[in-house]
C-alpha cells in the first residue's frame, strides 16, 4: 500500500528525517528544495501527497499551492503544509488556498505519520 510522496523542503536535515520516516512506512519518497522544482516535479509525475514547506526559495509555499490548485488535474492533490514560523495567519491563509493539513515544526514523528496516513486514506477512499 505504498504511496508516492513528494517533499518540498530546503533544510537538508529535515528532508533526511522525513525521508527516513516515510520510507520506513513503505512509501516512495522524492524530495526537492525549491518551490519551482516542486511545481515541475508534480507536473512530471503526480504524487499521492505533497509535503510543502512555506519558506521555500524561488517560489514560496503559498505560490506553489495557489498554482497547484489552478492546474488541471492537480486541484485534488492532497497537500500537507509544513511551517517553522507557527503563525496563525499563515495557517489560515494556507487553508484558504486549499491545503489539506498544516503541521508546525518541530513535529512529533508519530503525529506526522498519523496525519500522512489519514490524508492518504481520505484521498484513496473516493478513488477506490
Amino acid at each position: 500500500m505504498g504511496a508516492r510522496i513528494l517533499i518540498a523542503e530546503d533544510e537538508p536535515f529535515i528532508v533526511e528525517s522525513l525521508s527516513f520516516l516515510l520510507s520506513r512506512e513503505g512509501h516512495e519518497v522524492d524530495a526537492v528544495d525549491t518551490g519551482s522544482e516542486a511545481l515541475r516535479a508534480v507536473q512530471r509525475r503526480r504524487p499521492d501527497l505533497l509535503l510543502l514547506d512555506i519558506m521555500l526559495p524561488e517560489t514560496n509555499g503559498f505560490d506553489v499551492l495557489r498554482r497547484l490548485r489552478a492546474a488541471p488535474g492537480l486541484e485534488e492533490l492532497p497537500v500537507m503544509v509544513l511551517t517553522a514560523k507557527g503563525q496563525e495567519a499563515d495557517r489560515k491563509r494556507m487553508m484558504e488556498l486549499g491545503a489539506d493539513d498544516f503541521v508546525t515544526k518541530p513535529f512529533s514523528n508519530r503525529d506526522l505519520l498519523a496525519r500522512v496516513a489519514s490524508l492518504l486514506g481520505a484521498a484513496a477512499r473516493p478513488a477506490g
Binding site: 520516516l21 517553522a84 514560523k85 515544526k105
Partner: peptide, 24 residues
C-alpha cells in the same frame, strides 16, 4: 519574532525528529 521563531524551530525540528527515532 517570526524570524527568531523560524530560526529556532528549524534546528529543533531535526533534533526532535531524530531524537524521537533514537528513543523509539
Amino acid at each position: 519574532l517570526s524570524r527568531v521563531s523560524h530560526e529556532l524551530r528549524t534546528p529543533m525540528t531535526s533534533i526532535r525528529s531524530f531524537s524521537e527515532m533514537l528513543v523509539e
